[in-house]
Design a protein around this nucleic acid. Structure first.
Length: 852
RNA sequence: GCCCGGGUGGCGGAAUGGCAGACGCGGCGGACUCAAAAUCCGCUGUCCGAAAGGGCGUGUGGGUUCAAAUCCCACCCCGGGCACCA
């Protein structure tokens, strides 16, 4: 109504007039500045307090923080602040995993140098992290692309090279056409590039590898002592894929058992030597060099055609179980002597046998192996059972345990092999291996699925591999005093798919450090997982310019007490970092006793929107910054904590932002000095009444509950306990009994204190206002008064035949007899009791159950 | 196929042998207001019932127990991991 002359309700003016209002956008930046100015979360290496190391996986700088970052860093920040309040010196560093393809792709698109692009993204992300309220020791920040970090990444590479743990070899590798680079096995998922989703191709290329397989046993065994989610441990175990078995020689012969003129033998690997009597044929990988030597003339044409076809088949098709087996195998014409029976068995090729695993050749036992059974059925080969089937067993191969049979077959006496009849699988295996070793045919061995880590990448925006190629001296390391090798700045980024380093004459040409002659620089860079395999060590001593880190500094902080990040790194980063830690420890770079980097691991769930994983590329991003602008960082943090158990995936729709924001406003209204709510309540002094004692008890209970909840990562439950306590306070303040000032003071201050790790800004502000600029985060974590946890009366449940019929108040220390008496006194109970109960179970003071 | 998780109101979840559904969201009602928003108070598993009260109820079916969401057996469904690795 234009003529209305009533006072304006313009919200800005209104806010000015009401100093009581909770205004996060005004409070939050001020406290963020305070924590920086006061070095609140900077810790020195000689800090006298007990030490803790809380680490969130350092982020790839993709610009302003997304919800996944907020979730991750909220959990880490809560823990840092909580443990600091418990009296620890908590190392909480932050850095950036700043090499990687997005920056290079952006350079090709826009012409902006990846460094410029990356530095700008880091600035954005840093600002986000500050706005979330993260407590970090920023002095220790590291960036993968910083020359002072690259220098030591390259230094470590050369240490590994010197130790023989880095090497170069030519092999069939995974090539991602989208990323225009090779990939490690771990970065190929279902035949596709883990990053871009492109189908990977096989190429024979010379590449750099780290000998992670040297550590296969340790990487497997040391999983035992880790406090990690079972899921991640299982994934690592699967990936390493240890299997025990035996390798043995089989002489190549013709179909009559006459030895091959060249005396050729074939080595096979099996985990089931107990079934050797059932071997009716052998299978060799088509790529095996042996194939050309043993193939008979009459089979040569068909074998050649088969090998050619397999080579041209994509990895995906080859691993597929589709297609009939007879088209996927071929007879070589050769035979091999089964040492157990002395009989010749035919040697086949099949694409299901992999050249890269074991010996690339297997003995086939169709009776006890499903793949062999399928193959034997397709090619009409004989099947011999060597393990007793359980009653009622139907189907092809039997892979379970059972008594060994048919060794030697009853109708063929005088065979060379061991007698296994009647033994169970374990005993028969042992006996077979013992026999093989005694005969000098072979020995028990262990095979792993894990392959060496391919680390070279044909990209520009990564850490250069610090070696040169000299025509005279071969591969030479760049001298340590010349590190870091830096990529030149005067490069042009073109969409050719080729790294600009490969055509940069000035970078390419150099001199050999040994002979001084002309040499060519390595143009490949390292996998970015190399950078992230040691950053947690650098955080302990980031200022060191003589070594990557000092052993004493690392000893002071490592291992990381609590590592927090996404489960998607289960077999990538987490495996590589474990390998680096062990290798650096063995090389005397890291402390001798440091065998594992991350003592405890927590993997938080993903955030989904409309059921899909939240990501920029899918355009479904909810921007944290916008929520911080309006509701504040504390509300956003609280919503992340409250919504779900932290390890579970969560849909954005389920976030209770309004509820959390409302809670903080309610907290503010009751806790801010001059609170209208409190001012309206009649104030009492003197001795506390029963009502006041009730509040004291629930407050002590709150301390107990929240401490336990924080310790067991039940953050959603911790928030619920705080909310319940605030509801209690409201009932108290608005109740008829009035408030007892010291009681209300204690109840409010305690709530603020236990919330301080979760919502740091509002609690810091309220505490400072209530206590003359004191700082809640510098206070010790509260401890519950045990005597206040004991209730004087308890609500006892009375059941008849297990059904609840009444609840009665009894003294907390009531004995069994008085509990039963109290229960019988209830008319509601006696209405259900027809005469004397047959049996009475009493658990004073919680429950009495009458059985009739 | 194998190995892990998981299945509880309209929704997210809580409860680890002893009151199922804490806390939040949503919904309903009330107070305040000219009115609305905000705020405050209350109710909110389901069925029968006017009420008092009672029946049923934690994926399904069995079992153990005075007592089971919780422990055991079998199965169904959902999510994740592994899968020609001999």
């Amino acid at each position: 109504m234009p003529s209305d002359t009533s006072p304006s309700v313009d919200s800005a003016d209104d806010a000015e007039a009401q100093p009581d209002l909770y205004r996060p956008s005004e409070i939050e930046p001020r406290w963020q500045q305070y924590w920086v100015d006061n070095a609140s979360y900077e810790v020195d290496n000689d800090d006298p307090r007990p030490r803790g190391y809380v680490l969130c996986m350092y982020p790839y700088p993709s610009g302003a923080a997304h919800m996944g970052h907020v979730r991750n860093y909220t959990f880490g920040d809560l823990l840092t602040r909580y443990r600091t309040m418990q009296g620890e010196a908590v190392l909480s560093p932050m850095g950036f995993d700043s090499f990687g393809l997005p920056a290079e792709n952006a350079a090709i698109r826009t012409g902006v140098h990846p460094r410029e692009f990356t530095d700008a993204r880091i600035a954005e992300l840093t600002s986000s992290l500050v706005r979330i309220g993260g407590a970090y020791d920023w002095r220790r920040e590291v960036r993968s692309h910083d020359p002072s970090y690259m220098r030591w990444t390259q230094w470590i590479f050369l240490k590994l090279l010197e130790a023989g743990l880095a090497y170069r070899k030519k092999a069939a590798v995974n090539w991602c056409p989208g990323c225009q680079t090779v990939l490690a096995n771990e970065q190929v998922v279902d035949g596709r590039c883990e990053r871009s989703g492109d189908l990977v191709e096989r190429r024979d290329l010379d590449q750099w590898y780290f000998r992670i397989t040297d550590y296969a046993d340790q990487l497997l065994d040391d999983l035992e002592g880790l406090d990690w989610p079972e899921r991640v441990v299982t994934q690592q175990r699967n990936w390493i894929g240890r299997s025990e078995g035996v390798e043995f020689e089989m002489p190549i012969c013709d179909e009559n058992g006459t030895a091959h003129p060249d005396g050729l033998t074939m080595r096979v690997f099996t985990t089931r030597p107990d079934t050797s009597y059932g071997m009716t044929f052998c299978v060799v990988a088509p790529e095996a060099p042996l194939v050309a030597q043993i193939t008979t003339a009459d089979r040569a044409a068909e074998v050649e055609e088969f090998v050619a076809r397999v080579r041209n088949t994509s990895e995906i098709d080859r691993l597929s179980t589709e297609g009939s087996l007879d088209k996927r195998g071929s007879f070589t014409g050769a035979y091999a002597l089964n040492p157990f029976t002395g009989d010749p068995v035919p040697v086949y090729l099949a694409d299901y046998v992999l050249a890269t695993y074991g010996t690339g050749a297997v003995m086939a036992v169709p009776g006890e192996d499903q793949r062999d059974w399928d193959f034997a059925t397709a090619f009409g080969l004989p099947i011999i059972e060597t393990v007793q089937r359980p009653d009622g067993f139907e189907g092809g191969a039997y892979t379970g345990d059972g008594g060994s049979v048919n060794s030697p077959p009853a109708d063929r006496q005088g065979l060379p092999g061991p007698v296994l009849n009647g033994m169970d699988m374990v005993a028969a295996k042992a006996a077979a291996i013992e026999w093989i070793e005694a005969q000098g045919l072979g020995e028990g061995t262990v095979n792993f699925r894990l392959r060496d880590w391919l680390v070279s990448r044909q990209r520009f925006w990564g850490c250069p591999i610090p070696v040169v190629y000299c025509d005279a001296c071969g591969i030479r390391p760049v001298p340590l005093d010349q590190l870091p090798v830096l990529a030149p700045d005067d490069v042009e980024f073109r969409p050719t798919g080729q790294s600009p380093l490969q055509s940069h004459e000035g970078f390419l040409h150099t001199t050999c450090p040994d002979c001084g002659g002309p040499a060519r620089r390595e143009t490949d860079t390292m996998d970015t997982f190399v950078d992230s395999s040691w950053y947690f060590l650098r955080f302990c001593d980031p200022w060191n310019d003589e070594l990557p880190f000092d052993q004493e500094a690392v000893d002071a902080w490592m291992p990381v007490d609590q590592y927090i990040g996404g489960a998607e790194h289960a077999v990538l980063h987490l495996m590589y970092a474990r390998f680096f830690t062990k290798a650096l420890s063995d090389l005397g770079v890291a402390p001798e006793g440091l065998r594992e980097p991350f003592h405890r691991l927590f993997t938080q769930g993903m955030i989904r929107l409309d059921g899909a994983k939240m990501s920029k590329s899918k355009g479904n991003l909810v921007a944290p910054e916008e929520i911080i602008d309006t509701l504040g960082a504390d509300s956003l943090r609280l919503a992340h904590l409250a919504v779900k158990p932290p390890e579970e995936d969560v849909d954005w729709e389920d976030f209770g932002l309004e509820g959390c924001s409302r809670f903080l406003q309610r907290l503010w209204r009751v806790a801010v000095p001059g609170s209208v709510l409190v001012a309206d309540a009649p104030v009492r002094t003197g001795e506390p009444t029963e009502v006041d004692l009730g509040i004291l008890r629930t407050t002590n209970r709150l301390i107990e509950d929240v401490t336990r909840d924080y310790d067991r990562w039940a953050y959603n439950v911790a928030v619920a306990h705080c909310m319940a306590h605030l509801n209690e306070l409201y009932r108290y303040v608005q109740g008829e009994s009035g408030v007892h000032e010291p009681t209300l003071e204690f109840a409010t201050d305690t709530l603020i204190t236990v919330l301080a790790p979760a919502t740091p800004h509002i609690t810091a502000e309220l505490w400072a206002r209530r206590h003359d600029s004191g700082h809640v985060h510098e206070r010790p974590w509260p401890v519950a008064d045990e005597s206040m946890l004991v209730e004087e009366t308890a609500t006892m449940v009375v059941q008849v035949n297990g059904k609840v019929r009444d609840r009665v108040e009894v003294p907390a220390d009531a004995d069994e007899a008085s509990c039963i008496a109290a229960a019988l006194a209830s008319t509601k109970v006696s209405a259900h009791l027809d005469g004397d109960p047959r049996k009475v179970i009493a658990r004073p003071p919680k429950i009495v159950n009458f059985v009739t």
